[in-house]
Design a protein around this nucleic acid. Structure first.
Length: 596
RNA sequence: GGUCCAGUAGCUCAGCUGGAUAGAGCAGCAGCCUUCUAAGCUGCGGGUCACAGGUUCGAGUCCUGUCUGGAUCACCA
């Protein structure tokens, strides 16, 4: 990286000019603002104390030194306290020559065996996936791609919530009013069928509440004691006792849910290395609670329940085991964390879970620390914000949930209509069309959701999400497709251009240099996205690069009407840009079409 | 009430560890297809970076306080 080199040399300059040792890391090297001459900027304000001269004078002296002593630097320009350094054009050309053919430019090879465990998706088996899950899945999948690109070993885990009272609700409703309906008989996707009965339960439950309130119950009492609710609780008990009939329904209905989820995942393009089920993990963690009791970091109340006191850490007392000895949510997470540690010794445990659970993960970390697990600080909760709709939050009860499958259907339909209106697919066959509409609609959806910083709440505006112009996925896909069309037009492959490449007389245009600089940054962007666990940084980089390239494409002849030597370079530069776009888009889970 | 997060153009969002005159897209207006794909490009208008202090040569960025919005503080998961 040149920045490092410049910093090192600048430190040498300070040392030899002003007789002061200074470490290169303390120097600020930045990209030069585009409105000024130069490529990199040394901020010299802090140095004027050392030089005992004004910032511009200091910059002047250091600039002179650097041009004289650093081969790569061609010229310097002083603006106020900023020393702008221009590299020799050769530097960029060399970069181009060494990198443009590298199909994995920016990606690190595998470095070591450190595993990153990333848990995401984590659906409930009582209803289909909705928009919130979509954000979760896209973030989780993209992060794992980014981690891999940085050479990490990644273990993607889906922890399915397949037990509990909410599951019993849909089971009960189906049992009472389902009349044997199956996905096959109803032509409904399995998860949707189950969701239907979950909603039905809620409806009937509400009717009963209303009726009881009429008879003088308070709303709260009624909600806990409707015949339906009592029956659901009884069902949960039976489930825990392994009751044969209940187990049979449970297994049957869960299998429907899994079929449905599988289809949604496949369509979304996300996957997992491992699936855990809460039904088999919910008992874990109990022995660790015992251990905590022995160590004296937990305590038992008179009724037999077990607690941890986190008031010294600014939190509250937290229940770890109920008085009847059964475990709660946190108990289970303690257990699964321990199991993941034993199995993988992860470098990091990443949990992609909504920000409403910040407190829960705080507790988890603190409890692990109290238990003396030295790996407690490897637990990282990637808390993403809510997805809001123009009219407020999604609420399943009010029917304002955006269903994942329906959403993808609608996006597909929009992609089809738009594409046909533009007349882009006249020479496509049926399969090619289908593939393109899928690619474009998913590209739009994924980009729309990933370009936003995960931790922020975001607004899902249906009209904007299906927009294919401007800062959108299809905009980037389109640019990639245009680049590919250059090769079709030329009737030559990149390899053939490469053979004829002769760069000795090439003079870079301003935009070409900009493009090369942006490409040069890609590896750093990739590191940054890894550091910050932020797909949004990749998405935004893609957009910037694409915009710059479109600018180039618009007013620079690339293939035609230029001398062959120049054309060769420009075509291969385009190829390089295309490759980086494609690779970067892969990191956010988006495919790019050859033609659109 | 405690804790956490957010507040940047009419709308949706960038702005990485403090640096130069705060950027995109959408929406609005005006232009560009005998030329490599117009899902593109160019231009115009649009800002008290919630507010007030502070630190600093320098603050949208850091600190303190206030206001607004959201989340959370279950023997639910």
């Amino acid at each position: 990286m040149v920045e490092k080199l410049i910093a090192k040399k600048a430190a040498e300059a300070v040392n030899s000019l002003f007789g002061q040792e200074i470490s290169p890391e303390t120097l600020q090297i930045e990209k030069t603002n585009p409105e000024f001459e130069g490529d990199y900027t040394l901020v010299v304000f802090p140095l004027s104390r050392i030089s005992k001269k004004s910032p511009p004078e200091t910059a002047e002296i250091i600039g002179k030194y650097l041009v004289a002593n650093v081969e790569e630097i061609y010229a310097y320009y002083v603006v106020k306290g900023f020393l702008n350094l221009e590299l020799k054009e050769n530097y960029w050309i060399d970069f181009f020559l060494t990198s443009y053919r590298n199909g994995n430019f920016g990606f690190s090879g595998s470095n070591g065996s450190k595993t990153y465990v990333i848990e995401y998706s984590s659906p409930n088996t009582n209803k289909p996936l909705h928009l919130g899950h979509v954000r979760n899945n896209l973030i989780g999948y993209s992060l794992s791609q980014i981690l891999k690109a940085n050479g990490r070993k990644v273990m993607k885990i889906n922890l399915v919530n397949d037990r509990g009272i909410h599951i019993c609700k849909s089971m009960l409703a189906w049992q009472k009013w389902g009349d044997g309906e199956t996905p096959g008989s109803s032509k409904l996707k399995g998860d949707h069928l189950i969701g239907k009965y979950y909603v039905l339960f809620d409806k009937k439950h509400k009717e009963q509440i209303e009726e009881m309130v009429h008879r003088g119950y308070t709303e709260d009492d009624a909600a806990k004691n409707t015949p339906l609710m009592l029956e659901a609780q009884k069902m949960l008990q039976k489930w825990e006792e392994d009751d044969e009939d209940v187990m049979a329904i449970w297994k049957l209905m869960n299998s429907w849910a899994y079929d449905g989820f599988e289809k949604t995942y496949t369509r979304l393009g996300v996957d997992f290395d491992m699936v855990n089920y809460e039904s088999s993990t919910y008992l874990q963690g109990k022995e660790i609670v015992e251990e905590g009791l022995e160590k004296g970091v937990f305590y038992r109340k008179n009724d037999g329940s077990v607690w941890v006191d986190l008031t010294d850490d600014g939190l509250d007392e937290k229940l770890l085991l109920r008085k009847d000895g059964t475990s709660v949510y946190i108990t289970q997470d303690i257990g699964t964390a321990q199991r993941r540690w034993d199995e993988f010794h992860p470098e990091k445990f990443i949990y992609v879970v909504g920000n409403e659970q910040i407190y829960h993960f705080d507790v988890l970390k603190k409890v692990l620390k109290k238990l003396g697990r030295e790996w407690h600080d490897r637990v990282f909760h990637l808390s993403y914000g809510m997805v809001e709709l123009p009219h407020g939050r999604m609420k399943s009860r009010e029917g304002t949930v955006v269903d994942a499958d329906e959403l993808m259907d609608e996006m597909y339909e929009t992609a089809r209509k738009t594409t046909e209106e533009l007349g882009k697919t006249r020479d496509f066959d049926e399969e090619q069309r289908n593939e393109l509409y899928n690619t474009v609609s998913l590209g739009a959806l994924k980009y729309y959701m990933l370009k936003v910083d995960p931790k922020k709440n975001m607004l899902f505006n249906p009209e904007e999400s299906i927009d294919f112009n401007g800062n959108t996925g299809p905009f980037i896909q389109y640019t990639f497709a245009r680049i590919q069309s250059i090769f079709r037009k030329a009737g030559k492959t990149p390899a053939e251009f490469q053979k004829e490449l002769n760069i000795s007389n090439i003079k870079l245009t301003k935009v070409e240099k900009n493009l090369l600089k942006m490409l040069y940054e890609f590896p750093q962007v990739l590191h940054q996205a890894d550091d910050n666990l932020s797909p949004a940084q990749i998405a935004n980089y893609c957009y910037e690069l694409t915009k710059e390239y479109n600018h180039y494409y618009q007013d620079t002849p690339i293939l035609q009407r230029v001398e062959p030597e120049v054309a060769n370079f420009r075509v291969l530069l385009s190829f390089f840009v295309g490759n980086v776009i494609k690779n970067a888009m892969t990191l956010i889970g988006i495919d790019v079409p050859e033609k659109m």
